[in-house]
Amino acid sequence: MAIYKENLTELGERKRKHSLRSVWNALLYVVKTGCQWRMLPVNFAKWQLVYYYYKKWSGLDCFDLLLAKLREKVRSGMGQNRQASLGIMDSQSVRWGNNRALSGYDGNKKVKGIKRHVATDKNGFLLAVMVTAAHVHHSKAALLLARVLKQLLCGIRTIACDGGYRGEIIEQVKNVSDIFYK
């Protein structure tokens, strides 16, 4: 550890005033409370520093890696394979009046807003998420969500979904991504 610190000072990195744990706790506070960056309490690091690390870690996909490793650890602790082989896909229309560009109208649900398309494993752990305008039918978004699943989780072999995902979209997903719907 001392060798590592010596190498850092040789590279010109300065000593941290706030620990990364403090920055992480501030990020968790923002996520939990939904407060604005500038409204972080004074017992955390300055909001500019917390935001800097958030942008840096987001750009490196650290959050996705952390979520994947945590999901694998919990699954193995439950006596399951580390990688999920079964996915569950569904969508939900949500009222959304803040963004006119992304707003649509879902005629089936009588909702003006957006639609969340979510894929989870059998335990309910999040695998992939996609947001579209509410008028986009979930069978159309299923193809894009299946491509994301293929890129992220090679182990997914079966996807369970409701009757809304029917028709030719099933064959298209089978042909494009080798993921089988049942």
Rank of each mutant, 00 (worst) to 15 (best):
V30L: 12
A68M: 13
R38S: 09
S93Y: 10
W57E: 01
Q48E: 12
V94C: 08
L67N: 09
R95S: 04
R157V: 09
H18V: 01
R38C: 13
G155I: 12
L66E: 01
W37A: 06
L149K: 03
G104M: 03
Q151K: 15
G167M: 05
H137V: 01
R116Y: 12
L127C: 04
I156F: 05
Q36K: 14
P41T: 09
G104E: 08
I169Y: 06
K56V: 09
A141E: 01
R147T: 11
V129I: 14
N99F: 10
A26N: 10
H18R: 06
H135N: 12
K5M: 13
S76C: 08
G107Q: 03
K122A: 11
G12L: 05
L145M: 03
Y29H: 14
C161E: 06
N98D: 14
G113Y: 13
K174D: 00
V50R: 02
Y29F: 15
L149E: 02
A134Y: 08
R95Y: 12
L86K: 09
N98P: 10
L11E: 11
E10D: 14
Q48R: 15
K140R: 09
Y54K: 03
G12H: 09
E171P: 08
N7G: 12
K109S: 00
L20R: 09
L70V: 10
E171K: 15
Y181S: 01
Y53T: 01
V74I: 15
M89S: 03
I179C: 02
L127R: 04
V74T: 04
L70H: 07
R75H: 05
N25E: 12
D106N: 07
K110T: 02
I159N: 01
G104K: 01
K112N: 03
L102C: 06
T158N: 13
G163I: 06
E10W: 08
V30F: 05
T33M: 05
N108W: 15
K17P: 03
S91I: 07
E13F: 15
V131M: 05
R71K: 01
G167V: 03
K32A: 09
A119S: 12
E168N: 05
L27W: 14
H117D: 01
K122D: 04
N175L: 07
Q92C: 02
S58V: 08
Y51N: 01
I156D: 02
I3E: 15
F63T: 01
M39S: 15
S19G: 07
F125H: 03
W24K: 10
V131G: 00
P41V: 12
V148G: 03
G124L: 06
R16S: 13
A119Q: 12
L40D: 02
A119V: 14
V131L: 06
N108S: 10
G87H: 05
A160G: 12
T158P: 02
E72V: 10
M78T: 04
K115G: 04
V31N: 10
K109I: 03
G155F: 14
G155K: 13
L67S: 09
Y165W: 06
E10I: 14
K55I: 12
L145S: 00
I169D: 00
L49I: 10
